[in-house]
Amino acid sequence: MTSRINWFKYSSPASFYPLAGKLIPAFFAVASLLAVCGLYIGFFVAPTDAQQGEAYRIIFIHVPAAWMSMFLYVVMAFWAGMGLAFNTRLSSMMASAIAPTGALMTFIALWTGALWGKPMWGAWWVWDARLTSELILLFLYLGFMSLQAAIDDPRRADKAGAVIALVGAVNVPIIYFSVQWWNTLHQGASVSLTRNPSMAATMLAGMLIMALAIWIYSIAVVLMRVRSVILERERNSDWVQELTEQQS
């Protein structure tokens, strides 16, 4: 037992703060390295698509951002739920730190999707099932953030945010399938997102490397934001006072 690392040590904001500070540069370094590799492969190595020409290259940003937007919602709901269930402050801070990055990823996915849709489909926006559910996901992120911003007491804001995040998490699959069925009822398969089944190996590699880059970038940014949240919430505690005295 004694040889094990006590992981719970880092569930305290006071000990997590310096740990996060040490990890952020490493995450940023790895993220930039991967992003450079991924973008190089995406823009210079990967072949031009037979059907879509050069415009397809937006998938190297679009697809990773879309994956990340959905994944971050699950992670956010998980930490919010942990905060609600175990009353751990850091979990709730983590959830509120993840939300803006998740919203940003959703926005990037929608924006790049529009840029891709214009040359491919001839329209900035179509009421495709994936587009619509991504838009609703953005609304869910915005709702979570606005609710937390509207409540002054941070403890109540954490708990209320957790309830709405979990209700949203339960609803996301229902919304997704509803929108898909609605879409198939309204219009035929005039627009299909399925690309060539045989995606070139370099394309896939570029996309996966970019996904990894965006993932690690998100971790770095969330850690930075959670550090700010910790300082803001714990500003009256001794260790933050000492920290600010040392730095001034």
């Binding site: 869910l140 509803s178 069925w181």
Partner: peptide, 13 residues
């Protein structure tokens, strides 16, 4: 803002 997105499935069906 909180509730209308959650109403989407009911509206659709």
């Amino acid at each position: 803002l909180l509730i209308l997105p959650l109403y989407v499935p009911v509206l659709i069906f």
